[in-house]
Amino acid sequence: MSEQRTLVLVKPDGVKAQHIGDIIARIEHKGYKIEALKMINATKEQLAKHYQDKVNAPFFPELVSYMQEGPIAGIIVAGTNVVPIIHKMAGATNPGEADWGTVRGDFGREWPDGNLRNVIHTSDSPSEADREIEIWFPEL
């Protein structure tokens, strides 16, 4: 196991519902360190880089619209083996399938418009974490 950094994005629905503090508390209660924190208004360019594998998907315009509904809280978290642990903390991508006790299981839900609003993004590998941190925290 090694020291790692990972990216957490509290998405617009999580920010609007005032879950930034709840999510930070969960991270800190696990003993991980918050290295950076900022509010971000996502640009289409940032979203295209972040979701590079989804740019040509038919749902990409809705994804961009969702991620621009309001500000995002960007958080860099550091600690031993942090990437898989924080990714597990987020829960299943679909909030309706996420276990209770996970961020998405506790704070997420499905919406009548069918758009997937799932509160949080977490990096799924150390290499993705490095790539994503460069997109959202280019100053570091």
Rank of each mutant, 00 (worst) to 15 (best):
I135E: 07
E110G: 13
R131H: 05
H87V: 00
E128Q: 15
D113S: 05
R117I: 07
T93Y: 08
W111E: 11
N118T: 00
N118A: 03
D124K: 02
P126D: 09
E128N: 15
F107N: 05
E134N: 15
H121G: 09
G96A: 06
P126T: 01
E134D: 14
R117S: 08
A92Y: 00
G108V: 05
E97T: 04
A129F: 08
T102V: 02
I135M: 01
H87W: 13
R109F: 00
K88A: 14
V119Y: 10
N94F: 02
E128S: 15
G79S: 02
E128P: 07
G96E: 00
W100S: 15
I133V: 13
D99Q: 14
L116A: 02
R117K: 15
E132K: 12
R109W: 00
P126E: 11
D130M: 13
H121N: 11
E110S: 15
E97W: 05
H121P: 14
G105P: 06
G101K: 00
H121I: 06
P126Y: 09
N94S: 06
N118V: 00
R131E: 12
P126R: 01
F137T: 10
L116D: 02
I133N: 06
A98T: 02
G108I: 01
V83D: 05
P84Q: 05
V83W: 07
I86G: 10
E110Y: 09
W111I: 07
D113E: 02
F137C: 11
D130N: 06
G108F: 11
N115Y: 07
G96R: 00
A129I: 10
I85H: 14
F137G: 03
H87S: 15
H87M: 12
G108D: 00
I76K: 06
